[in-house]
Design a protein around this nucleic acid. Sequence first.
DNA 1: TTTCGATTTGTAATCGATTACATTTTTTTC
DNA 2: GAAAAAAATGTAATCGATTACAAATCGAAA
Lengths: 338, 338
Amino acid sequence: MDERLRKPRIDDVARRAGVSTATVSRALATPDQVKPKTRAAVEKAVLETGYVLNVAARNLRTNRTHAVLAVVPDVANIFFSQVLRGISDTLHQHGYRLVIADTGNDPERERDHAEFAQAGWVDGLLLLNGRLLPTPAGGRRRLAVPTVSLCERIPGSDIPYVETANREAARAMTERLLQLGHRRIGYVSGPPNNILEHDRFAGYRDALAARGLAPDPALVRPGDYTLATGEAAASAYLALAELPDAVFASNDAMAMGLIRGFTAAGLSVPEAISIAGFDDIEFAGAYNPALTTMHQARSEIGARATTMLIDLIEGRQPASREVHLPAEIVMRDSTRER
Amino acid sequence: MDERLRKPRIDDVARRAGVSTATVSRALATPDQVKPKTRAAVEKAVLETGYVLNVAARNLRTNRTHAVLAVVPDVANIFFSQVLRGISDTLHQHGYRLVIADTGNDPERERDHAEFAQAGWVDGLLLLNGRLLPTPAGGRRRLAVPTVSLCERIPGSDIPYVETANREAARAMTERLLQLGHRRIGYVSGPPNNILEHDRFAGYRDALAARGLAPDPALVRPGDYTLATGEAAASAYLALAELPDAVFASNDAMAMGLIRGFTAAGLSVPEAISIAGFDDIEFAGAYNPALTTMHQARSEIGARATTMLIDLIEGRQPASREVHLPAEIVMRDSTRER
DNA sequence: TTTCGATTTGTAATCGATTACATTTTTTTC
DNA sequence: GAAAAAAATGTAATCGATTACAAATCGAAA
């Protein structure tokens, strides 16, 4: 192959600059270990040859990649994508790159990716989903790669995590609805077996219990975080002899479903019934009416978890291994005083 | 270091199985080049040692990574995240992994990532943003890594691309509004200098021109794809002596802004004015009223571009280097006959 | 049984950087 | 100006796989 077409290597640069490969490597990676004059010569040679470092070779030698893998159930999910934003920014600040694995909620793909991560493909692992427990086939080897879990803690494991204080948040929202004078407060839940959901429902009951109210089973409707189940819940409430005063949905999509369901039936929100959501997704404020909801600091969750992970990767003790971030009530137009 | 703690290498497996490293490599990568009995012995040894292949070493040797880099202006943008879904799925089907670089709309970060891609960090490059023109510093070296551009073609370059047929789509939507009996049709544009926007506006004018109508400059409002500019446009229209019959916004967020702006002023949509958007983002159907819009097959855009890229990577001639996907009108509740 | 071709396996070079250690050069100190 | 210390550079081993080529084994045909 023609010399001019072949991809230049470090020794091509070295020859051109009249130094050794070691010096080139140092001039590029640790410039102040090299005399300014030599450095300049190397830089010139790099430009002239069009040299680009070979990442694979460096990774092999240093046993580091400066990349982090985020395992996500669904990149297209607006909730996760905002967390990714926080992750991406923080990684960039520290000189790391982001690799994303979208598992499409397929446990097999999850496992595959987590396993590949052990192969030195990345320096660290961020799990955006509690379900993933990457025990390698043999089951005896410990997780080799530093790992942090986000959004959902992983029960029964000691993997450090960052999450919203779901229980406290749900309790606060329910209390706020009580303060507004509502008493018959409905709840639309997320999928069962979901840790997150479990916490939120507990918060809902906490608030009621604090007022000496027992949760009315007829007012608690099952959902799965989709708009459709919100609409279904609305129909179910409409079939009741007495409508609830307010409904707290465990996420925003279901809250929007409730609003659509009720307005389709001729009830106006918040005049006839108050609706609150959870998450404060991007369109919550744009909705019609604008949604009252719990704001989760999604990009901060990502940022905190990433900082923690980088600490682990670089051998520092992270400040804390379990972080619960507070959520904030955002009052908008879908709730009103009774 | 203790033998049991050290990460096992391919020669540990070879020794244990009583074969050479070459055989282990073949048993793992090309199993049918190896006698079933030997293969079984190797598999057993792999399990016993807990061997995991070192990705960096393989990448270095084979000069392949089986990974593709997607450069995205903003992962948190709901539009891109759905395209990523299509990309991710298609890659997975072909045994590739996805690396995502979120540039946060920062041209410097864009350049940095594109350059790193040339370092053998990935096998191919997907650009989700026309702005990126990765000319390396020297400027003389051609793009080494196979590249495909999505959503926006890159003017003045021969990089293959996949995009929605924006001009035809905008024309079709405008025609539909005309069919509904509207004559004073407003248009809220995207940012200037945006190729995509340029095409859509051209389509709007095409449709009017076909009916012998000149576009009324007072009805064309500038926007930047955000909800806020949609609301601002609504105020501007309200200040007019005569309201438009319908407004076509160049994306859904602005259409929602228009709806909020008009309903806040006491006008109801679609009774008083029809509103149409573009993109059919996830919440378009959930909006109140549900939004009439152009559906872009976002995940298909991702899938097609990815197939094209894999063809390029694997040395096949892609079926076509320029793909324009049709968009479909989705009639919902924000438009009505006049 | 012998021979030839096909299949399976082994030996060792190779990918392209980094870095421990050795050596040379430069600077400091007296 | 010489000796000692510090800084800069060079030599060559190394990271852990893949694979060209050579050697061994196997099966079928004569």
